[in-house]
Design a protein around this nucleic acid. Structure first.
Length: 648
RNA sequence: GCCGCAGUAGCUCAGUGGUAGAGCGCACCCUUGGUAAGGGUGAGGUCGGGAGUUCAAUCCUCCCCUGCGGCACCA
């Protein structure tokens, strides 16, 4: 038998017979390692202890202390154990796939009756039983015919399909957890008892299309989470509770920011408190855009279909548009209009007024554009995914040669805004040419390079998403990570030579001839609605002072202080601070509690002492400590704090 | 749009084949209290909408709407 040479993480190499398994190697090192080993990494591939190694390789043996590998195996085995549990309880249920996902796994089943919450409990109990049996996990490679025959005989059509999808030359691997068999690329643990019985939980059942295709059958997906131990599971469940407390829908109600109702699904009724956030953010963005060399415009809401036909939206986007038919009784002639889902065609109309010179470029045209999109009902989510929204939209009309400089300028523009808004952790993704596209490869080459170079020039790294660009051009996406680790794609910059072409935008160049400009669609926040939702969740409702809808409540302790309370409120208001009086007949404890729950950042308590000394007692949200401070001083302090970051 | 679940007072939720309850909130009264809920009294509901079964429907059945969790979607 031939020999192979294996290199260990410490740099030592040892020779073994070809076909040796990581399990053999662990045994050859020590008994304790043989017991503790769970898997190996062989030439970068996560390897089952039972798989033979056939060539020289770098190898590292993993134990439960290697968290990444341990969690992957635990979750993957849990998925199999769950599928087995389901089939032990309901043998007629058909199995499909069950991958590991963040924090756990899911498994999709085909079953007529829906799984109920009680079913989940039953499955969980059965899983624990299987874990306690400590059934061995074994594996074999089968040939395709045998695998297909096996699954046909067992009435598992989805598995037959999966076997058929495995490319020629790749092994068709079977795994057994005890008697229960599943097609699986592995790796797995060595016996079911290695999955901690007290550190997993089945979370929910949901529908999911077979192979993610909405034309194929809807399956039932059971989600589970699993960790190495009970404490980690508890911690995760606690995290979920915390995330729920940040839910913008709940905080929106509690802070009286906005509401939604069924007469206007997917649209926001902004209350005074919420509208303060909105206008503060919009005022800030308007100042930034002015500073960034943009001109602001405003364009119609209801636009005749002719323009949408010309722009191409009527063809490609109609399902997402609100169509408005004007009745003949009310209009001179019957017209079909659409609410604008995007601002770009209208911006081209403004560009097309008068003759543009190359001297006008780049022309940066911004609009807080109210758009309406008929989003699928299932997509709606609070104020994050809505049917009526306002974008911080702009289109930069420029030449191809100006794309790089304009993009670099935009990245710096966006970075400054994210920093002001408290987001420092964000990334750029460059989406490149898709398969179905227009334009020459040379032009794609140039424009993709321009975007990449612009990122480098601005000093930011980027990831590439191959083939994810729009059909007419590549784009940059800017994704920020929030306080609890969730990603939100907000900013975007998209190169578009198509729309100027379709809507016949031109400028006169130095050569005296008419040329086609390129458009850069770009946004920093995306939509105000969604971004405010993100801000609320980011801060768990405790917005930065300058954005907080209610900044200060001045609360009387005794009613003899009411006159002074009103004086303090008036002085703060005059100094540009949003202040309100609370002179209700309630105890200070009650007022403090209520305004703390309402996330008011500053409470000024006023009793007879403060009236006497012309002071206030200041209490900040979340702090127990209070501070007595002179009226003039507190006005100066809070007025400074109320100043937006770009004006401070 | 698809699968599943849900819709009862402003909010959170309980409940019943004979038109309904709690806590908080709200109103009024007492209380003037020093930093996360002082006490009392009271008002408030076409039980999401429509149809059906029934002597009788908030409850059972069907359709619709909206929401929630996923999936699909996000030119």
């Amino acid at each position: 038998m031939s020999q192979i040479s294996l290199t260990f993480p410490d740099g030592n190499t040892r020779d073994y017979d070809a076909g040796v398994t990581p399990a053999d190697i662990a045994s050859s090192i020590s008994n304790s390692l043989a017991k503790k080993a769970i898997s190996a990494t062989v030439n970068g591939q996560h390897f089952d202890l039972q798989w033979p190694i056939t060539e020289d390789a770098a190898i590292a043996i993993h134990t439960m202390k290697d968290e990444a590998q341990a969690l992957e195996l635990i979750r993957h085995d849990a998925a199999h154990i769950m599928a087995r549990a389901v089939q032990e309880i309901w043998p007629e249920v058909k199995v499909t796939i069950g991958p590991v996902i963040e924090n756990g796994w899911y498994y999709d089943f085909d079953r007529d009756a829906p799984f109920t919450p009680e079913d989940l409990g039953q499955i969980e109990a059965k899983m624990k039983e299987i874990i306690n049996r400590r059934d061995p996990v074994t594996t074999e490679i089968w040939d395709r015919t045998r695998a297909v025959k096996h699954y046909e005989a067992n009435h598992e059509p989805y598995k037959v399909e999966l076997v058929g999808m495995i490319p020629e030359g790749q092994p068709i691997r079977m795994y057994w957890h005890g008697h229960w068999q599943d097609l699986c690329r592995g790796p797995h643990l060595q016996h079911t008892g290695q999955v901690p019985a007290d550190a997993f939980k089945l979370m929910k059942v949901a529908g999911a299309y077979w192979r993610g295709d909405s034309d194929r059958p809807m399956l039932q997906r059971i989600y589970g989470v699993a960790f190495q131990n009970r404490d980690q599971l508890k911690k995760y469940l606690h995290f979920l509770e915390e995330a729920e407390k940040r839910d913008h829908r709940r905080l929106g109600r509690e802070m009286n920011l906005f509401h939604m109702q069924e007469e206007a699904p997917g649209q926001v009724f902004w209350h005074p408190n919420g509208w303060h956030i909105y206008t503060a953010l919009q005022d800030y963005m308007r100042r930034q855009q002015t500073r960034g060399g943009y001109v602001e415009v405003n364009t119609p809401q209801v636009v005749d279909r002719k323009l949408w036909e010309a722009s191409g939206h009527w063809d490609k986007y109609q399902d997402n548009m609100f169509i408005v038919e004007v009745d003949e009784d009310h209009a001179r002639e019957k017209a079909i209009n659409a609410l604008k889902p995007m601002n770009c065609p209208c911006h081209v109309q403004i560009f097309n007024q008068g003759l543009k010179s190359y001297r006008d470029l780049p022309l940066r045209m911004a609009e807080f554009g109210s758009c309406a999109r008929y989003e699928p009902s299932g997509a709606l989510h609070g104020i994050m995914r809505v049917r009526g929204f306002t974008q911080d939209d702009a289109h930069i009309f420029c030449t191809e040669a100006q794309i790089e400089a304009e993009t670099a300028k935009f990245i710096e523009f966006l970075a400054a805004i994210y920093a002001d808004l408290g987001f420092h952790d964000w990334t750029i993704k460059l989406s490149t040419r898709p398969e179905k596209r227009i334009g020459s490869d040379e032009s794609w080459d140039r424009v993709e390079k321009a975007l990449g170079d612009a990122c480098n020039k601005a000093g930011y790294a980027f990831d590439v998403l191959e083939g994810e660009g729009a059909f007419y051009g590549p784009k940059l996406e800017f994704t920020l990570t929030d306080a609890i680790g969730r990603d939100w794609q907000c900013g975007t910059l998209q190169v578009d030579p198509n729309l100027p072409e379709r809507l016949d935008a031109t400028f006169v160049a130095e050569d005296g001839a008419k040329h086609r400009p390129v458009m850069l669609h770009r946004a920093v926040l995306g939509s105000f609605e969604r971004f405010i939702g993100i801000l609320i969740e980011e801060h768990a409702g405790k917005l930065p002072f300058w954005l907080a809808p209610r900044q200060v409540v001045v609360a009387s302790i005794v009613s003899d202080a009411d006159t002074y309370v009103r004086e303090v409120v008036a002085a703060l208001t005059a100094a540009g601070v949003r202040a309100e009086a609370d002179t209700r007949n309630e105890k200070i404890n009650y007022k403090v509690r209520e305004h703390s729950v309402g996330k008011v950042p500053v409470i000024l308590a006023i009793g007879l002492k403060e009236v006497e000394d012309r002071t206030v007692t200041l209490r900040r949200l979340g702090e127990k400590q209070t501070r007595v401070i002179a009226l003039d001083e507190v006005i100066a302090e809070l007025s400074l704090e109320a100043t937006p970051p770009d004006l401070a």
